[in-house]
């Protein structure tokens, strides 16, 4: 298990920590302008998604929509939920649940021959 473990390094390492916790420290380096940029990108992708409702993209529609959905999803969890600069442990915890859900439920849908 590759959990970030302060104890591995040295006993007593916990004593020498800065006042600000590491996660809060990381967040304070991101400017509000960065968040606004991300939000603009999200808004543009959403507009593109809605556009597929009006413009016929043929067989590309579903892959395009899925790709845009994943892009939005990743942007939010990486930037707004700070996974980009936060502990990898959080990313692993969340991705474990997400991956478990995706794999298990795709298997269920396959059993019902959903994709046919």
């Amino acid at each position: 298990m590759s959990v970030t473990d302060r104890n591995d390094a040295e006993v007593g390492a916990t004593d020498e920590e800065s006042e600000t916790p590491p996660d809060i420290e990381a967040i304070s380096h991101v400017s509000d302008w960065k968040y606004i940029q991300i939000a603009i990108i999200l808004a543009v992708i959403t507009a593109a998604e809605v556009a597929t409702y009006y413009i016929d993209t043929g067989p590309l529609e579903v892959p395009l929509l899925i790709a845009m959905m994943i892009a939005k999803f990743v942007l939010v969890i990486m930037w707004f939920m700070h996974l980009k600069f936060d502990s990898p442990l959080f990313t692993r915890t969340f991705v474990a649940g997400l991956a478990m859900a995706v794999v298990v439920y795709i298997a269920v849908l396959s059993m019902f021959e959903f994709w046919a």
């Binding site: 959990v3 473990d5 302060r6 916990t14 920590e17 916790p21």
Partner: peptide, 10 residues
Amino acid sequence: GHHATNTGYT
């Protein structure tokens, strides 16, 4: 507090 946790996070 976070000072005592193993991961450094609360």
